[in-house]
């Protein structure tokens, strides 16, 4: 590797750094918000393309910049459409699913979503909860994380963050609520 190559690499790294930074800044904070499975993949892809295009700059530099531009553009339009039209939102994102509610595991759902009970327990522990009785609801979110809602908070408030659950989860929650009044 001679000095000419080194200075070439220097210039290329510098300018692509500035360009990628500019593209990201242009597309906004939302681009990196990890709200569904896809957001995170896009973020990692942009990073991988960036790295690859620097290493193989002789063949891939402009192609790489173009691909990053396209990835960010698609991400921009998909989030734009889904924040404005519910139709696109339901197309791009699954609704969250209720896995556990007021002491009951939903076995069929756990099987369908391929989540063992041990992972539900792990999610509870990660929230700092030690007793299952303290848990009001456990929800599988659209980005693949598991939310745990503590019981004492769900008792005193209405559960208005659960409005966007999928239909079956809503029905199970309703059945369980009805049981308690019997």
């Amino acid at each position: 590797m001679d000095i000419r190559q080194m200075s070439e690499l220097f210039l290329i790294a510098f300018f692509s750094y500035v360009i990628v930074l500019f593209l990201l800044r242009l597309s906004g904070k939302r681009t990196l918000l990890k709200m569904n499975a896809f957001d995170f993949i896009i973020t990692v892809s942009v990073g991988a393309v960036f790295g690859n295009m620097l290493i193989n700059y002789k063949e891939n530099l402009f192609q790489g910049l173009y691909v990053i531009f396209l990835l960010l553009l698609f991400q921009f339009f998909s989030s734009l459409l889904s924040s404005r039209y519910t139709f696109f939102d339901t197309l791009l994102k699954a609704n969250p699913t209720l896995l556990f509610y007021e002491g009951t595991y939903y076995e069929a759902i756990l099987k369908k979503e391929r989540i063992p009970r041990s992972e539900v327990l792990q999610a509870m522990r990660e929230q700092g909860i030690g007793r299952i009785e303290e848990v009001g609801a456990v929800i599988l979110e659209t980005d693949g994380t598991i939310s745990v809602l503590p019981k004492e908070k769900s008792k005193e408030n209405n559960l208005d963050t659960l409005q966007d659950l999928d239909k079956k989860s809503k029905k199970r929650k309703k059945d369980s609520d009805d049981d308690q009044f019997d």
Partner: peptide, 24 residues
């Protein structure tokens, strides 16, 4: 609208931080 975030995503953020409702 400007940041392209919808209400469901705010609900998800609330659930992830262990709260159940917009009330708190």
């Amino acid at each position: 609208r400007k940041e392209r975030v919808d209400r469901n995503e705010l609900k998800q953020a609330i659930r992830k931080s262990g709260y159940v409702s917009f009330e708190g």
